[in-house]
Design a protein around this nucleic acid. Structure first.
Length: 200
DNA sequence: TGCACGATGAAC
DNA sequence: TTCATCGTGCAC
């Protein structure tokens, strides 16, 4: 795990005061990445304001063969990011009023991703974060961040030391009833008893 | 060029 | 259970 942490932000005395996940973290099995994202911290810096939240709920979308995944319809202008390299944000508009944020996983062309569904507020987050649309709203995430590199300085995921999830619950994904046999697969993961998950 | 429908959230 | 609201994908 620690090999996926990139140190940055060296102080003048040589001390490292921050770490973040690097591309190798995302370039692995999607279910593994999804589970390991639980407990990590999503950070977004805009206009000098650093907002962050602990990831407490995610969903895995495995690739074109996964009928619930956007990539199952092939490469389109929207899904282009999902077909790209790992470690980039896939952000899209849903229902004409909300944005959803994913993290692209596995090697380029694999077209898999992890949807971030809920956060526990950590810093400078005021609105609700218990749902994919709400967390984007509260974190100031919108379409201009689609395709954004998550190893960048203003938008990334970092470990929260000594804050690993105790127990992970697996359930079918939300809102994918149309996906036939893929609708019931347990690809939604959340931290047991966490009050910030979108649904129980 | 038109149209049905969402990886949602909130109200009733 | 219904509705707001509009980009996307696919039919015509």
């Amino acid at each position: 795990m620690s090999s996926h942490w990139a140190e940055y932000g060296k102080a003048e005395n040589g001390q490292t005061f921050m770490k973040k996940l690097q591309r190798s973290f995302y370039d692995r099995d999607t279910i593994l990445v999804a589970r390991e994202l639980l407990g990590k911290k999503l950070v977004h810096v805009t206009g000098g304001l650093e907002r962050s939240g602990r990831i407490v709920e995610v969903e895995a979308y495995l690739g074109p063969h996964d009928l619930a995944a956007h990539s199952s319809r092939g490469i389109t202008p929207r899904t282009k990011t999902m077909f790209g390299a790992p470690g980039y944000a896939y952000v899209y508009m849903i229902y004409g009023m909300y944005y959803c944020m994913n993290v692209v996983t596995e090697p380029e062309g694999h077209a898999s991703a992890v949807l971030l569904r809920a956060l526990e507020p950590v810093q400078n987050v005021w609105g609700k974060t218990n749902g994919p649309g709400l967390l984007c709203q509260a974190m100031g995430i919108d379409k201009h961040l689609n395709g954004h590199d998550l190893s960048s300085e203003n938008f990334y995921v970092a470990p929260m030391t000594g804050d690993e999830p105790v127990s992970i619950i697996e359930r079918p994904r939300i809102g994918v009833d149309y996906a036939g046999p893929w609708a019931s697969k347990p690809l939604r993961f959340y931290m047991k008893d966490n009050p910030f998950v979108s649904r129980r």
